[in-house]
């Protein structure tokens, strides 16, 4: 009798193990061949958005830099002209750098941006091999020109792109 009880418990335990090994589907995600989709509102790598016509949304206002709790963003603004237009309105960001080592991915920059230019996207696969490489310049952050749009700088007719901050359709949005 006393010999059988421990064996029975062992067998039960083993059964669970064997069931898990051969029966159930594994929950391991075979990264990097399989990637789990990120949740909505996931805060990953920053992206500087464009309008559909290709103009950059970023107007170089540096509110993101001001909001950043880690002082990770550096912005320098310059003047737009209709000959060489980067963004609607007078002002665009001629220098835009984010130091990914300082960034804590809080999303305050996204909240502060008045034109919805800087957003935290889905990409979490960031690697760099030196501190200098961790400073992402504007060329790395700006998204590619959407289909139907022109690359910046653009030559635009005068009097059309005069508003820097777009009209807010829904103030609750």
């Amino acid at each position: 009798m006393r010999v059988v009880e421990p064996v029975v418990e062992l067998a039960r335990g083993l059964a669970t193990t064997l069931r898990m090994i051969f029966g159930e589907k594994p929950v391991t995600v075979q990264y990097p061949e399989e990637k789990r989709p990120v949740r909505p509102r996931f805060r990953g790598r920053h992206v500087l958005k464009r309008y559909d016509n290709g103009l950059e949304k970023c107007i170089g206002c540096a509110l993101c830099a001001a909001a950043c709790p880690a002082d990770a963003i550096f912005v320098e603004a310059s003047e737009n002209t209709d000959e060489a237009r980067y963004s609607p309105g007078d002002r665009y960001a001629s220098t835009y750098e984010i130091n990914m080592l300082r960034c804590i991915f809080c999303g305050f920059c996204e909240d502060a941006c008045p034109t919805e230019a800087i957003v935290l996207g889905d990409n979490y696969e960031l690697s760099f091999t030196s501190r200098r490489e961790a400073i992402y310049p504007k060329e790395m952050l700006i998204e590619p020109v959407p289909p139907g749009g022109q690359p910046t700088p653009q030559k635009t007719p005068p009097g059309v792109f005069t508003r820097s901050v777009p009209e807010m359709k829904d103030s609750q949005d």
Partner: peptide
């Protein structure tokens, strides 16, 4: 106008 982001006085 809603110019604060582009206004030098901000």
């Amino acid at each position: 106008p809603l110019d604060c982001p582009v206004c030098d006085k901000g």
